[in-house]
Computed example of a mutant assay.
Amino acid sequence: MQKKWKKIAFTIIGITIIFVGKFIGAFISKSLALFSDSWHLLTDIASLILSYWGVKVALKSANHKYNFGYYRFSIFTALINNLSLILISVYIFYKAILRYFNPVNVEPSGMIIFSILGLTVNTIVVLNLRNNSNNMNVKSVFLHFMVDALSDIGVLIGGIIIYFTHLPGVDTLLSAILACLILRNAFKMTIECIKILLEAAPEDISIDELKESIKDLGGIIEITDIHIWSLSKEILSMTAHISIKECNIENCESRLHEIQHLLKDKFNIDHSTIQFEKSTCGSCFHSKPDHKHCCNMCIDKCGDEKHQKIINI
């Protein structure tokens, strides 16, 4: 994690340099595509600073107030970053529409020079971050600059086309395409952040497969009341009730060791809480004779009752 915030700090310095160059170049060349790209870089700098803060805070240890640690801070900052990208992509598209109805002569040489400068820096940034995309904040930054590198290629191609054809409308078309690229990636990342904050089960883990893998260890009757969620993109947690045939202290300790090894090695689940019992879900509150009701937090109990409630609604 410490290496990740150092990489982000390095990226902040590089992007600040390129922003100043592109912003000046946009005024010289009057290129909307270059101006849109430089404006986007300004939000990138803000998002990088926010990401830097999020990754630094995530390094703090758990305490009595934040007993799950500070991993969610990095998800929260990644969400803000991607929401800002959605807003800026809408703004760029709006500016493209205005430029379409009010054409402006574009200086292609400035577009070419500054897009080459941007492409060089963005390529260095992408290569610097490419092996650290498991962290949501770093992944967000990585996608930012992948899009930036593509944007520079687009501006470069646009500048070359305008230089030879003298068609300034190409610049407007490119800025609209760039806005769509930014919006697509930002929207995808925003949905991913929201799912983590809502404690949805990770998409790359099948609960049915996980249950079968545990049962394959032998001596397992059933796995119930299972919950899997992400504290951050790379930190997964799980709780479950597991009924076993031989429910004694010695066997439970041995079983727990095997199960936790399986969860870490096969599913990358770092933190698990396992409750052993003789009967299936026998220790759950809703399983008691005087508390028979449907529990909305249990995915494997009262299935018919839940279905009937949905039909009645």
Rank of each mutant, 00 (worst) to 15 (best):
Tyr71Thr: 09
Leu34Glu: 04
Lys56Gln: 12
Phe27Arg: 13
Tyr71Ser: 14
Asn82Phe: 12
Gly54Val: 01
Trp5Cys: 11
Phe10Gln: 11
Leu79Val: 01
Ile18Leu: 06
Tyr71Gln: 12
Asn63Ile: 08
Asp37Arg: 07
Gly14Ile: 00
Gly21Arg: 03
Phe76Ile: 11
Ile18Gln: 07
Ile17Glu: 03
Lys60Gly: 05
Ser61Pro: 12
Leu50Gln: 00
Thr77Gly: 02
Ser38Gln: 02
Ala78Tyr: 05
Lys65Glu: 06
Leu48Val: 00
Ile45Thr: 06
Ile45Trp: 12
Tyr52Thr: 00
Leu59Gln: 15
Leu42Pro: 04
Ser38Leu: 01
Phe35Met: 15
Ala26Met: 04
Ala62Thr: 00
Thr16Lys: 11
Asn67Lys: 12
Asn81Lys: 08
Lys65Leu: 08
Val55Arg: 02
Ile17His: 01
Asn63Thr: 14
Leu59Lys: 15
Ser47Leu: 09
Ile24Gly: 06
His64Gly: 15
Asn67Trp: 10
Ala33Trp: 03
Ile17Lys: 00
Ile80Glu: 00
Ser38Ala: 14
Asn63Cys: 11
Lys22Ser: 07
Ala9Gln: 14
Asn63Lys: 05
Trp5Asp: 12
Trp53Asp: 05
Asp44Leu: 05
Ile12Glu: 07
Asp37Asn: 08
Arg72Lys: 14
Leu32Cys: 11
Phe19Cys: 12
Ile18Trp: 03
Ser29Arg: 03
Ile8Asp: 01
Ile8Cys: 02
Phe35Ser: 09
Lys22Pro: 02
Gly14Leu: 09
Leu42Arg: 03
Thr77Phe: 03
Ile15Pro: 00
His64Phe: 13
Leu48Asn: 13
Leu48Gln: 10
Tyr71Met: 08
Ser36Gln: 05
Ile24Met: 08
Asn82Asp: 14
Trp5Gln: 14
Ala26Lys: 02
Ile75Met: 05
Lys22Glu: 14
Ala58Ile: 01
Phe76Gln: 10
Thr77Lys: 02
Ile28Leu: 14
Tyr52His: 13
Leu79Glu: 02
Phe23Glu: 02
Ala78Thr: 09
Asn67Leu: 10
Ser31Met: 06
Trp5His: 12
Leu79Thr: 01
Trp5Leu: 13
Thr43Trp: 07
Leu41Ala: 15
Ile80Val: 15
Tyr70Ala: 08
Phe10Asn: 09
Ile8Trp: 00
Leu42Gly: 01
Ser74Val: 06
Thr11Asp: 07
Ala46Gly: 11
